[in-house]
Design a protein around this nucleic acid. Structure first.
Length: 487
DNA sequence: GTGTGTTTATTTCCGT
DNA sequence: ACGGAAATAAACACAC
């Protein structure tokens, strides 16, 4: 199922990839050129840091959430730290903590070394049944493993934010109470069972202060104390003047493979604290002064050159990597935050990209027409746009714009745009399509309305998955920055 | 009273 | 030395 819409892109990717990693030619790329399961990245949707765990038995790893060895290699190439590499220690497999937390978190002592310095290789037990490739060697876990569930003496190397996130993930609920978080932590980390209760204060402090976490007030008819907490699915300040403002990230994330800091390693490769992507700004209401945006962006990501490259962006020099970065970096677990706003705002339109909680009926699936192509076995984008907002500012009807691939893009509703604007929009959306094509929809019901897919159950990548994904991806470096070099 | 939530201040660790 | 991130401690307010 080739999903890269453009064969040229796929071939180009392959060429550059092999130029950099010629060993892959012999390793199977030649025999199985661009494994569909790899190029489609479909599996990536279901990939989680859990499924990447090299110690998981293969029989538990053959599902859609388990990348093949080739895929693991791909992730590894991209800098995904847990793609078959180190596997620090852990709560034991099978304990309740394993649901929503890494099985092998790093220990304070042993996780300081990165994968390059880890012990000798071993073979991944996780291989795609159809990959046809031998198991790839992966790094062994540090010699000393700590069972945090039973060892009361060793403080888990996780930041409080990480603990909170783990608890939230493990709960499988969209929102959790403070006591749920407490319970999960004490249940899974013996240290906190015996520690002074001050850590609970820290948890509360973190919840309040960390922008990552969002409080959901308890309904009046809901009994109990306090509200609920969830990982904030969206950031209202993602767009400033039409420019996507990424959340602040540690510069360490962009310092390359060897730049992973000791602290980061200490805080667990692959499950590093959310603060790096979810800023700990000392106040949820605080917004970064606009005058600092540029400076911040300059330290945040090379991909943020997007702002400076806005003109190029609109000319069609779409930064695919930035799309991935956008999608995978922040809170968005779905692909709802694809940065179409920038381009559209330049067209005099504004579209609000909403979280999945946005009231139904107002928004439309941004790829609403792309859904049509889905029925043709093609692709679909994720996310949805508030076209009511757009239409308010761009009161237009169906235009004559011929969107790529005969699709009816939202832009088609804007016939008053001049040719240049339409062309720009076309180009943008074409790239948007291509980007979206890298994340194909899971098979959906025939006739399913795009809007219907906004339901949580239909979100192709769960919050958990997304969280695990972006956390892993941004732990050590900017894999998509590397990825784009192959395009 | 207890649990929850917010805020401020301080300390520690670490990278630059 | 400096700054950032995180941890820690504490005070306070509020709801149940």
């Amino acid at each position: 199922m080739p999903v890269l819409t453009s064969p040229d892109i796929a071939n180009k990717f392959k060429e550059k990839w092999l130029a950099v990693f010629p060993e892959d030619q012999a390793a199977g790329f030649d025999a199985a050129p661009l494994d569909d399961s790899l190029t489609s990245l479909h599996w990536l949707q279901n990939f989680s840091i859990l499924s990447a765990d090299p110690e998981r038995p293969s029989h538990g790893c053959a599902g859609p959430g388990c990348p093949s060895s080739q895929q693991l290699l791909f992730l590894k190439r991209l800098g995904f730290p847990r793609a078959g590499t180190e596997s620090p220690s852990s709560p034991p497999a099978g304990d309740t903590a394993s649901a929503g937390m890494p099985l092998h978190p790093g220990s304070p002592v042993t996780s300081g070394s990165d994968s390059s310095t880890s012990a000798g290789p071993r073979f991944s037990a996780c291989a795609h049944p159809a990959s046809g490739f031998p198991h790839i060697p992966v790094q062994a876990s540090p010699p000393a493993e700590v069972d945090y569930k039973t060892n009361p003496k060793v403080k888990p190397p996780y930041s409080y934010a990480s603990l909170i996130c783990m608890a939230m993930q493990a709960s499988k609920q969209p929102k959790v109470t403070l006591s749920t978080i407490y319970n999960w932590i004490t249940e899974n980390f013996c240290y906190y069972r015996h520690a002074e209760p001050s850590w609970q204060n820290s948890i509360r402090h973190n919840l309040s202060l960390n922008k990552c976490f969002k409080k959901v007030p308890r309904q009046k008819d809901e009994p109990g104390k306090g509200g609920f907490w969830q990982i904030d699915p969206q950031y209202a300040d993602m767009f400033v003047n039409g420019i996507f403002k990424r959340r602040r990230m540690s510069a360490n994330h962009y310092s390359g493979g060897s730049g992973a800091t000791q602290r980061q390693n200490k805080l667990v490769q692959g499950y590093h604290s959310v603060q790096n992507t979810c800023p700990y700004l000392g106040g949820k209401q605080k917004h970064l002064p606009s005058k600092n945006i540029k400076a911040i962006r300059s330290t945040v990501s090379p991909l943020l050159a997007m702002e400076a490259n806005k003109a190029d962006f609109l000319k069609g020099d779409f930064d695919l990597a930035s799309v991935f970065d956008d999608v995978l970096s922040g809170n968005c677990s779905t692909f709802e935050d694809l940065d179409i706003n920038t381009a559209l705002s330049s067209l005099g339109c504004e579209m609000e990209v909403h979280g999945r909680q946005h009231a139904a009926g107002v928004a439309r699936w941004c790829g609403d027409a792309l859904a049509q192509s889905q029925h043709l076995g093609q692709h679909q984008s994720y996310g949805y746009l508030d076209l009511s907002a757009a239409s308010a500012e761009c009161p237009v009807g169906m235009g004559e714009l011929h969107a790529p691939q005969q699709l009816h893009h939202p832009l088609q509703r804007h016939p008053h745009l001049d040719q240049d604007q339409l062309l720009q929009g076309q180009q943008h959306l074409q790239h948007f399509d291509e980007a979206a094509a890298l994340f194909p929809e899971q098979p959906g019901e025939a006739g399913l309305q795009p809007w219907d897919e906004i339901k949580d159950e239909a979100i192709p990548m769960s919050l958990d998955q997304g969280f695990g994904l972006y956390e892993g991806f941004f732990t050590e470096m900017q894999p998509w920055e590397r990825a784009e070099t192959y395009l």
